[in-house]
Simulated assay, not measured.
Amino acid sequence: MIYVHIPFCRQKCSYCNFHFSTSLSLKDEILKALKKEIGLRKNELNLANLKSLYFGGGTPSILTPEEIMMLTDEVLKYFHFDPDIEITLEANPDDLNKDFLSGLSKTVVNRLSIGTQSFHDEDLKLMNRIHSGAEAEDSIKRAQDHGFHNISLDLIYGSPVSDFEVWKNNLRKAVALEVPHISSYALTVEPKTALNSWIKTKKVPSPKDEEQQKEFHYMSDFLKDNGFIHYEISNFAKPGFYSRHNTAYWNNEPYLGIGPSAHSYNGRDKRSWNVANNTLYIKSLAENKFPSETEILSEKDRYNEIIMTGLRTASGVNIARLEESFSSEILDHFEKELTKGLQSGVLKTTENHLMIPEENWFLADGIASDLFIL
């Protein structure tokens, strides 16, 4: 799969550190560099057919439909597309106007991931989002009117400026809109963000773990009751609508990341990442140099990563794969910690797969870390 990172945003969200820019000249330079990088790295993925192309980052919907097709055509020069390829565009609700959607419907993009975050205006103000709850709802309906039905919504739970009833209403609206995929994450407080500053100065209260856990479990039950499959801790889908792109990450499949700060992985032991600085990225590619750093993963790193990603999913970790891939030292540690986890009930095994029981998913990071080798 290929991930194209677009390093532009229309606003700086209060809960992240993402850089933003709307400079047209810089955008043109970035697009030129993206095309250059795609060509230089055409031999890195040894795939018969590309199954996922994902435009993410910042705000890819800041691009015009013509620019999106230009990048897609550049990828198609060097890679064969699977007949059933998933081509996803991340979008902000405020970008999904009729003209943009009309143009986008004529491209090969067949899936939208919309950064709704919430249908509650106070939540959106806290996150410094431009759109309102009503505008978020309208943007989804417009996208459906223009033929986009494979839609994923992002929702944030655990906001300190809303309550349980607001969260219930968010979920009811998402279900009523008949979208087939929902990704939902707890609101987190990152250092050096506006939200962190507001909490320190007591302008807003800090998110509460117990409230977030309550909302997480309600979400899981409610969405399953409405036909969704809880296939990964933060992801729910109707049958046939799992995100192929994200599933490839969780299954440790190879991927190629194009663009500033994008990451790549060869599916075995090598990870690389591009520089985040736009100017350095452009300069390197103008000189036919890769703007990236590389890390060779140790056996312990590879083991920890398989445990971390696999235990986030409903399918879990394939124990046979572990036994085929790692040394006796690694496996001895795994067996020891596995026994502890099974005895305490925080882990279970089914058909030679190790998984975390769904009632413990909210605590999955801590449970998985107990199996890590440090």
Score class of each variant (00 low, 15 high):
279 T>E: 12
71 L>Q: 00
195 L>N: 08
323 E>V: 13
132 S>C: 13
89 L>N: 01
194 A>E: 15
66 E>P: 02
213 Q>L: 10
160 P>G: 10
312 R>T: 07
87 I>H: 00
349 T>Q: 15
3 Y>C: 04
224 K>E: 15
2 I>C: 06
219 M>I: 06
123 D>A: 10
27 K>F: 05
249 Y>R: 11
293 E>R: 11
30 I>R: 00
309 T>I: 11
148 F>Y: 06
63 L>W: 03
291 P>V: 03
245 H>A: 06
272 S>L: 05
259 G>W: 00
77 K>P: 06
68 I>V: 12
254 P>W: 02
362 F>C: 07
260 P>E: 04
352 N>A: 14
177 L>C: 12
219 M>D: 03
24 L>Q: 14
105 S>T: 03
124 L>R: 00
339 T>A: 14
359 E>L: 10
254 P>R: 03
10 R>Q: 12
90 E>L: 03
93 P>Q: 10
310 G>N: 04
181 H>T: 05
27 K>E: 08
198 W>N: 11
237 A>S: 14
147 G>T: 13
75 V>C: 12
246 N>I: 00
159 S>G: 11
60 P>M: 02
371 L>P: 01
54 Y>S: 06
135 E>P: 06
369 S>Q: 11
156 I>W: 03
80 H>C: 09
310 G>I: 08
18 F>L: 10
134 A>P: 03
56 G>D: 04
299 E>N: 11
96 L>W: 01
56 G>V: 06
257 G>L: 04
8 F>Q: 03
274 N>D: 02
293 E>N: 11
158 G>E: 00
70 M>Y: 12
238 K>V: 12
303 Y>M: 07
311 L>E: 00
49 N>P: 02
323 E>N: 15
306 I>W: 14
270 K>R: 15
333 H>T: 12
164 F>T: 14
115 G>W: 02
27 K>H: 09
342 L>R: 13
213 Q>Y: 08
264 S>R: 09
182 I>V: 14
1 M>W: 02
271 R>Y: 07
232 E>M: 05
366 G>A: 12
169 N>D: 12
54 Y>K: 08
1 M>A: 07
111 R>F: 05
53 L>H: 02
85 I>M: 03
162 S>N: 11
221 D>W: 05
114 I>F: 00
273 W>H: 13
243 S>V: 02
282 I>C: 02
305 E>D: 15
308 M>Q: 11
71 L>M: 04
30 I>P: 00
359 E>Q: 15
290 F>T: 09
3 Y>Q: 05
179 V>A: 04
89 L>A: 02
172 R>Y: 07
224 K>W: 07
192 K>W: 11
193 T>K: 14
39 G>H: 06
290 F>W: 08
284 S>R: 09
327 S>A: 11
349 T>A: 08
148 F>N: 00
174 A>G: 05
369 S>T: 10
163 D>T: 12
211 E>H: 14
129 R>D: 00
